[in-house]
Design a protein around this nucleic acid. Structure first.
Length: 553
DNA sequence: AACGGTACCAACCGCGCGTGC
DNA sequence: CGCACGCGCGGTTGGTACCGT
């Protein structure tokens, strides 16, 4: 700590400590009764507290005031003790090892500071939190990604191992699962082994990498990247860098669309997407594309009830089960579409990750925003037959890859109109892998699926026909690198080298030569075309089953 | 030297959970 | 069952030091 204000930190008593000027003004200086002192602790107070703990042990903090005469609330005492006075506390800067651990822990847990602290003896959650927030700022300023690529990879590996080791829906009654209109009922949706198709694969990557990339940036102070009061455009520009430019410069997702790379990539693939020149739509798409990975805009902040349940699962934010909606499997809720600025405003509430949804993680304002949005959604009215009318259940989107979403309220959902003047379904198509096919609404089958009236569950393999595959290649959503990867995988898996080349070209366009080149140096199993998104889709089968994240104590 | 912006961090706040009555 | 209380957590605020102009 650089400062040594009023000696509370350096144990040098001062007159200020004796007669602390920091008594809560509201207390009028009366520190007795219910009016307790606030502000920095003095060494005197520290001594009193230490003595008290020696005598009575930790706990029962509210009794401190009674027994010791310390004019601090129990809560304050507990914090002081836990963060500064208890023995074995490490002071000073984090070591490189600790930093490394923190990074990995954060990739694994998200903003679970206390849990992270448990892995760092002598460190407090507050310390870690402050460190992380500082790190976020620093890296954001420096234009560096929050996580090193290898961390993203490891997180993915961890996730993948969990996935393959956990339950999966393959072989299960998929339909039943999809029918379960409850987050609780949503199992660990897995696409076992290698992806059967690009769409089944795609969700896996973004939920890890982009989730990670965003997550840290989504801590409270930087939730939604920037204060809501900041000008939108400014925020875009200052948002956490997610892409590296050819010159090493970092580009935000919005940079991606400020230049022509977006279109270039799309054109290189002959995308049928108009890549809407309309700014709003473009934003919507760009947001959607990242919203599509959800993590990017959700991070930790969101307010939703079901989060509580999932949080109880003690699932780290990056260990989202397949129900974790830091993926494209995420149901899209009204907030997403009704936000004037989905990137700025209250993020969708569909994050099922342990800390993605927690109301506690959301600011009160966010919660209110969402609440107001929810209320504002007529279909969300309690009287409506289905409270989820304005949303899509996890299963819906989960299965959207094969366009066989279970019976859902998609029909309702498609009726909503975004502030952009797009139907939510349009946005949905832009925000989900559905759009990756580029045929969300060109394909009659898909259209039918989205009509919501007669949705059939079909095996993945039934849906992924060669034609569909071709569609996907042509219409891959270029707002999503992972989609590109998926396409890449498709191309390679089917021996279409040309496609792969195009893929690489596209990535080069998207990521820049340097970055793309860097990927070639990544170890086996890691993408040769990208790192920011974790792994090479074509290396799916080569992924070592080693869960590096488990190395963390 | 003065000023403003920034970085950093301790402390605080609000909320939710668990428990006991 | 409802309430109060203790506790823990994540997020936010406020104060100070540092740095650049």
């Amino acid at each position: 700590m650089r400062r040594t204000k009023n000696g509370s930190e350096d144990n040098i008593p001062s007159s200020d400590e004796i007669l602390s000027p920091l008594v809560d003004e509201d207390s009028g200086g009366n520190v007795s009764g219910g009016c307790l002192k606030k502000g920095p602790w003095t060494s005197n107070e520290d001594e009193i507290l230490i003595e008290y703990v020696k005598k009575h042990g930790e706990g029962n903090w509210n009794a401190v005031q009674k027994h010791s005469g310390l004019s601090r609330c129990g809560k304050s005492c507990r914090l002081r003790w836990a963060n500064h006075l208890r023995p074995n506390l490490k002071k000073g800067a984090f070591t490189a090892e600790e930093e490394h651990t923190i990074i990995h822990l954060h990739a694994k847990m998200g903003n679970k500071w206390a849990r992270m602290a448990a892995h760092l003896p002598g460190r407090t959650d507050n310390e870690i939190k402050n460190y992380w927030n500082t790190r976020i700022k620093r890296r954001q300023r420096a234009g560096l990604p929050l996580y090193p690529p290898e961390v993203s990879l490891r997180a993915w590996q961890h996730r993948h191992n969990q996935d393959t080791g956990g339950s999966n829906i393959v072989g299960k009654d998929h339909h039943d699962l999809l029918q379960a209109n409850s987050y609780d009922a949503i199992p660990d949706v897995k696409f076992q082994g290698k992806p059967h198709n690009a769409l089944s694969y795609m969700p896996q990557l973004p939920e890890i990498s982009s989730c990670m990339l965003k997550r840290g940036l989504d801590s409270s102070q930087y939730g939604n990247f920037m204060p809501s009061t900041m000008h939108r455009q400014k925020r875009y520009r200052e948002s956490a860098p997610l892409f590296s430019g050819p010159d090493g410069s970092v580009k935000t997702p919005f940079h991606q669309f400020e230049d022509n790379s977006y279109d270039q990539v799309a054109q290189s693939y002959g995308s049928p997407f108009p890549l809407d020149p309309n700014a709003a739509t473009k934003n919507a798409m760009s947001f959607g594309s990242f919203e599509g990975s959800h993590s990017l805009t959700n991070g930790n902040s969101s307010a939703s009830q079901h989060s509580k349940e999932t949080e109880k699962l003690e699932l780290p934010s990056l260990q989202y089960p397949e129900t974790d909606l830091c993926s494209w499997e995420t149901p899209i809720q009204p907030a997403m579409f009704e936000s004037v600025d989905p990137f700025i405003q209250s993020p969708p509430t569909f994050m099922l990750g342990s800390d993605c949804l927690s109301p506690r993680n959301s600011g009160l304002l966010e919660a209110l925003i969402y609440e107001s949005k929810t209320i504002g959604c007529p279909k969300n009215h309690p009287s409506h037959k289905n409270s989820n009318s304005c949303s899509i259940t996890p299963g819906d989107v989960t299965d959207s890859y094969n366009m066989t979403a279970g019976k859902t309220e998609i029909d309702d959902y498609t009726e909503a109109v975004s502030p952009f003047g797009h139907s939510t379904s349009t946005l949905f198509s832009e925000c989900t892998p559905i759009s990756a096919t580029g045929s969300s609404y060109e394909d009659p089958a898909l259209t039918e699926a989205f009509s919501g009236s007669n949705v059939k569950s079909e095996p993945l393999d039934h849906v992924w026909t060669p034609d569909r595959e071709k569609e996907a290649k042509n219409g891959v959503e270029f707002t999503r690198p992972d989609a590109l990867l998926a396409s890449d995988w498709q191309g390679q898996s089917s021996g279409i080298e040309k496609e792969t080349t195009s893929m690489t070209d596209a990535l080069t366009l998207l990521l820049g030569d340097d970055l793309a080149a860097d990927y070639k140096h990544l170890p086996s199993g890691i993408s040769t075309t990208h790192s920011g998104w974790g792994l090479d889709s074509c290396s799916w089968n080569n992924m070592p089953p080693v869960c590096q994240m488990s190395d963390i104590p």
